[in-house]
């Protein structure tokens, strides 16, 4: 199969869905000739024109709200919010309007809209252009939230999001845009709400999303050399959450590590831990469930500080080793 980048995969999803359905259109800041801050929409304006690849004023509330208003009338807008940090500026329209419109109106409205947004740290953009705010939005009934880790999923989940009749927020990690992966040329979708087991293992379940999946897989390679067998689950969707896949895996391994880039306090790791301990997996736990997450600081500018603020491969390795040392079987062997 051919390999393309994550950014190309996103662009293909947008182009194919616009060709497939004339109700689909794009709105965002500098997404036309400029191609978007990360070049994701580069060239789309040439094929689809400025009516369907709309450069908007710098107005996140208007972009998200206009997407919601257009969606209620049957269009399928895909809004790009240039940095996920800017979701805060438009969040009334997302949280109080788009997410709740259907329920408030007694189930009599559909809001088929997508908000795509580059997220995460690692680019030296500091505190207002580097956050991972997915937990804010997965807390809101009425929204769906996805965070693809691979080019295949970036394309397949975005297509599902565009075809979904609910508001879907797609978090795309900036550092993933240039990563490559296999993506088929024919049409396919990845269902929202289904996790993927990226690597099978028997000792520890590592649960991650987005770029943390890649770091968890790299950590799993190293741990395998030490005889620790790690199962890596890529959640892909945060809401709805595939609790079944998580619980099944933890029942098998008896140990769980949740990895996310967002700072630990009130991050989605708490929700995953809650999901595990409220389930039958609780009875299978051989050790406390551990969260490997960002430090509770704004993302700093200096590259050494920035790196220290979010989980790296070695942090995941260390957490897994420590967990194995705590568990009864390994203590008995020691």
């Amino acid at each position: 199969m051919r390999e393309i980048t994550y950014a190309q995969a996103v662009r293909e999803a947008l182009a194919e869905e616009m060709r497939r359905d004339e109700r689909v259109f794009l709105m965002g800041e500098d997404i036309g000739v400029y191609g978007g801050a990360f070049g994701v929409t580069l060239g789309l304006i040439d094929e689809f024109g400025p009516e369907r690849v709309m450069d908007t004023p710098l107005s996140e509330a208007a972009i998200i709200g206009a997407a919601a208003g257009a969606a209620v009338l049957g269009m399928r807008p895909v809004a790009e919010v240039q940095f996920s940090d800017f979701l805060t500026i438009g969040s009334d329209q997302l949280v109080n309007q788009a997410a709740k419109m259907r329920y408030m109106f007694g189930g009599k409205a559909r809001v088929p809209m997508v908000v795509r947004t580059p997220a995460g740290s690692g680019t030296g953009a500091a505190a207002q252009h580097s956050q991972s705010l997915e937990t804010w939005f997965m807390h809101i009934p009425g929204l769906k939230v996805v965070a693809p880790a691979t080019p295949y999923d970036a394309k397949g989940l975005l297509k599902s999001a565009i075809r979904d009749d609910n508001p879907v927020v797609v978090f795309e990690h900036k550092l993933l845009y240039k990563t490559k992966g296999q993506v088929p040329e024919e049409d396919y979708t990845v269902p929202i709400g289904k996790a993927a087991v990226r690597r099978e293992g028997i000792d520890i379940t590592v649960i991650a999303t987005s770029i943390m999946v890649l770091r968890s897989l790299a950590a799993a390679d190293r741990l395998a050399e030490e005889g620790i067998s790690v199962e890596v689950i890529d959640l892909r969707s945060l809401r709805p959450l595939d609790a079944e896949t998580i619980v099944k895996s933890v029942c098998k391994t008896g140990r769980a590590v949740v990895v996310h880039e967002a700072n630990k306090f009130a991050g989605f790791g708490g929700e995953i831990v809650g999901t595990i301990v409220e389930s039958e997996a609780f009875d299978y736990l051989d050790a406390p469930v551990v969260r490997v997450a960002g430090k509770d600081v704004p993302i700093p500018y200096n590259p050494h500080l920035e790196r220290a603020a979010v989980p790296q491969e070695e942090d995941i390795v260390a957490a897994c080793r420590s967990l194995m040392r705590q568990s009864p079987r390994w203590r008995a062997l020691a």
Binding site: F25, E51, A61, A62, I64, G65, A66, A67, A68, G69, A70, A71, V72, L73, G74, M75, P77, D92, Q93, N96, Q97
Partner: peptide, 21 residues
């Protein structure tokens, strides 16, 4: 709308849809 001014972007988007349609 329970949010003061909250309907203004929605109306604007609806108008965008009317124009597109």
């Amino acid at each position: 709308n329970g949010i003061v001014g909250g309907g203004i972007p929605i109306a604007t988007g609806a108008a965008l849809a009317c124009k597109k349609l």
